[in-house]
Computed example of a mutant assay.
Amino acid sequence: MTVHRFLGALGALVITLALATTGVASAQDGPDQQTPLGPISAADKDLLIKVKQASLWEGPVGEEAQTRSQNKRVREVGLQIAADHRKLDELLATLASKMKVPLPATVNPTQQTWIDELRGLNGKAFDTAFANRLRSAHGQGFGEVAKVRMGTRNQSIRDFAQATNNIVAKHMTMLESTGLVTQAGMSDPVPAGGMPGMAGDPALASARSGLLGGGGSTLLSIGLIVLIGATVTVTLLRLTKPRREAD
């Protein structure tokens, strides 16, 4: 293979990677849905669904802190989190109704593991798990809600995302004020089983997809990049390999 042919093949692979990853992202986004408040994207709808699921577990565990915690500050934070989620739920219900987006009545499986874990704890163990579980979840959610706010073309969704992140930022600050948040609470959230060292939980890899997105396009990109790398390596070795002199 000549150098020119090699570069041509490499360019074709790069184009294939770009088209493939763009195609996957577009398929995930899907067409906009028309609503009385304007068009909304798949990411916009997913925001409403995921915020509802967050309220379904954060509100109840905030209330449970009143009986399970031995720490006055943790009880105060839990009470405020529960109250804020009730207000956020009212705003969410109104918006989802107008946009005709059905909201879930149950948490997702990972969130259920957190509820079960916290309901099995009392006193100091509850306080530590509560502060770190909620700080971790709020930290991830903050970035993902901000991403939707930045990309949405719907003003109502933008306003809701802004209001949501104001509450999330407030909750993160309050959780940190307990003095119980460790590096685990600053890491990505994972299913129960790894407290207090959540960052070392073996389920971490499966939880990386995040609050609002999936990992399909990322995996495809990695696979294609590996393919390109292997092709480049083999081809360069062939091009640079010394030719044997004819006998």
Rank of each mutant, 00 (worst) to 15 (best):
K45E: 14
R5Y: 04
A203C: 04
G38S: 11
S97E: 13
T16K: 05
L237Y: 09
L92M: 01
R68T: 01
D84N: 10
V168R: 13
A20P: 07
D116T: 07
P109M: 02
I157A: 11
A129M: 01
H85K: 00
L56P: 02
A129P: 03
L48E: 02
A137F: 03
N108H: 05
P242R: 08
S217Y: 09
S187C: 00
A93E: 01
V181G: 06
K170S: 08
P60Q: 00
R149N: 08
K52W: 02
K170Q: 15
K98A: 10
R243T: 15
N166V: 09
V168Q: 01
P191T: 14
K147S: 15
P60G: 02
Q162K: 13
H85T: 10
S156N: 12
L121S: 06
L175R: 00
S177P: 04
R243E: 03
E245T: 08
D32Q: 03
G139L: 05
D29R: 14
T21C: 14
K241V: 02
T231H: 13
K241F: 07
I225L: 02
W57T: 01
A169Y: 03
L236G: 06
I225V: 15
L95A: 10
Q183S: 05
T240K: 04
L239G: 02
Q70A: 11
T94H: 10
T106G: 07
L19C: 10
G179E: 03
N71Y: 05
N108G: 10
E58G: 09
G30Q: 05
I222M: 14
S177A: 11
A169N: 04
G139P: 15
L211P: 12
T110P: 00
E117W: 06
M172W: 00
L175Q: 04
D127L: 06
A146W: 14
G123N: 04
E64R: 10
S26W: 08
A161G: 07
L236E: 07
A203W: 00
A137Q: 08
A205S: 06
I222W: 14
D159W: 00
G194A: 04
A192Y: 05
A129K: 09
T178R: 04
V148C: 03
P39I: 03
G179Y: 10
A82Y: 13
N108E: 01
A105I: 12
V3D: 04
R73E: 09
D247M: 05
A207N: 06
D46P: 12
I15S: 09
D127M: 01
G23K: 03
P191R: 10
S26N: 01
K100Y: 00
E58H: 02
A25V: 14
K52Q: 11
